[in-house]
């Protein structure tokens, strides 16, 4: 197991290097620089600033400098949030995004799996229709509309949950619910089809004919096997939940990475953009790895490739 993790990590390095390079090139192609400001600065002052951040050097040299720092684990400095390093910013924002993402995942699972299971077991009935309609609505509405709806109902109308901000556990409920809506719907649909497929298998019939009770068959055999394809998607799903919370962070004023990312792009905060992108890349790689490992645990027949 350890050697597999090590090998995976090693193979991630070139991917991350290419991601960093691509982003480095892209952000510099985009017109407008970090120091084009509302009120124009005298050229002498722009020269001072550029010298401070090494932006006066040729691009190739900037790139080499960047890679050298990157190799040491230094993601550079923010031009906009002066006096703060990118490492600093990301270490303060990442835990928030992680918290929000994991809570979102938790909601997605506790809503998605039961909905899908009920729909599959009661297939063809009104239950099935209700569950699946709910799930399809979840993936058919933009996130900000769901957020708006939740704020309206729980925050402004019923007044039982805070409208926004990030203070206590209660404050986390609405953002996490908003974030979880579409993954929950996705999981429900997947669970349903996965269970249906498993139910058709011969061994389920065998188990049933051997006199095993309906519910115990479902719980002991069907769910476990139906879980495999679900676990596969949980990887990318977790990554999406952790990294994809831009809109939710905006709506609910949550101090996570997403907000930094959007403002970084509009500020042309080069190092911060690349840094955030790299963190996203790492999250994706790590979650995929965890999933592969979980996969082997669930189904020992599968071996992970190195």
């Amino acid at each position: 197991m350890f050697s597999i993790v090590f090998k995976r990590a090693l193979s991630a390095i070139p991917v991350l290097w290419i991601v960093a390079t691509l982003t480095f090139i892209m952000v510099r192609i985009v017109p407008g620089g970090p120091f084009d400001m509302d009120k124009a600065l005298p050229p002498e002052i722009v020269a001072n600033i550029k010298a401070k951040y090494h932006l006066d050097k040729p691009l190739s040299q900037q790139y080499v400098l960047y890679l050298q720092r990157l190799a040491k684990g230094d993601l550079g400095v923010s031009y906009k949030y002066a006096n703060r390093t990118v490492n600093d910013i990301l270490t303060s924002a990442f835990p928030v995004s992680l918290e929000l993402g994991l809570l979102g995942l938790f909601f997605a699972i506790i809503f998605g799996l039961p909905l899908g299971t009920i729909a599959a077991i009661k297939r063809g009935t009104a239950w099935d229709a209700i569950c699946m309609t709910g799930a399809t609505i979840g993936i058919s509405v933009p996130t900000f509309v769901i957020g708006a709806l939740l704020i309206f109902v729980f925050g402004l109308w019923l007044r039982i949950l805070p409208v926004a901000l990030w203070e206590s556990g209660q404050h986390m409920i609405l953002p996490a619910l908003t974030l979880s809506a579409s993954p929950a719907a996705y999981l429900a649909r997947l669970t349903r089809s996965s269970i249906l497929e498993t139910l058709e298998r011969d061994w389920v019939r065998t188990a049933r004919s051997k006199g095993l009770g309906y519910w115990s068959t479902i719980i002991k055999h069907v769910l476990r096997n139906a879980l495999i394809p679900i676990v596969t998607v949980l990887g990318p799903l977790t990554a999406i939940l952790i990294t994809g919370s831009f809109v939710v962070e905006f709506i609910f004023a949550v101090p996570g990475m997403g907000r930094f990312f959007i403002t970084a792009v509009s500020n042309r905060d080069y190092d911060l953009i690349i840094g955030t992108t790299l963190v996203f890349g790492i999250i994706l790689i790590v979650t995929n790895m965890i999933v592969d490992i979980a996969y082997t645990l669930l189904d020992p027949r599968i071996k992970i490739e190195g």
Partner: peptide, 9 residues
């Protein structure tokens, strides 16, 4: 100049 203060002007 080392401070590179934008509003030095």
């Amino acid at each position: 100049p080392a401070t590179a203060a934008p509003y030095a002007f």
